[in-house]
């Protein structure tokens, strides 16, 4: 089956993103496909390259990136929610006259239409609240 995951929780703030990662791994191990992971609301902070958790804590960013590399995962961050919260690609940062972008490798910024499209084509949508 084709799944879309919607993540509202910021990493290291609420548990939602970590739970979504566990669920994503279980989905892939069970042979299902992940059409898209859509990061919305505070979930957009998952795409910040500047997170630097202590070494003895789990590093959610590198875990998302590993999943993206190994399974060609589509990690989409809502661009409107991200702009409000300061998650910007280098080109967005320059367009908005900010000092630098911070979007992590493996993540893409896109509009809410990507959530609508994913909902329309996926067999299941699972939301991970903040």
């Amino acid at each position: 089956m084709q799944f879309t995951l919607v993540v509202y929780g910021a990493p290291h703030s609420s548990e939602g993103a970590a739970t979504a990662l566990r669920f994503a791994r279980a989905l892939l191990q069970s042979g299902h496909a992940i059409y898209r992971v859509f990061f919305y609301s505070d979930g957009v902070h998952n795409g910040s390259a500047l997170a630097a958790p202590p070494q003895d804590e789990q590093d959610l960013l590198s875990q998302w990136q590993a999943l993206e590399r190994n399974h060609k995962l589509d990690l989409t961050i809502c661009i409107a929610a991200a702009q409000r919260r300061g998650v910007l690609s280098p080109s967005e940062a320059s367009r908005l006259e900010k000092t630098s972008g911070n979007l992590a490798d493996g993540f893409e910024l896109a509009g809410l239409g990507q959530l609508a499209e994913a909902s329309a084509v996926s067999d299941r949508v699972v939301t991970f609240g903040g």
Binding site: Y8, S41, A81, G111, L112, G113, L115, A116, E117, A120
Partner: peptide, 19 residues
């Protein structure tokens, strides 16, 4: 919190995509 507003934005975006 922002969920009410961001929910409305998502609803409008879905509608704009004919969903």
């Amino acid at each position: 919190n922002t969920l009410a507003r961001e929910g409305l934005e998502a609803v409008l975006a879905c509608a704009a995509m004919d969903q």
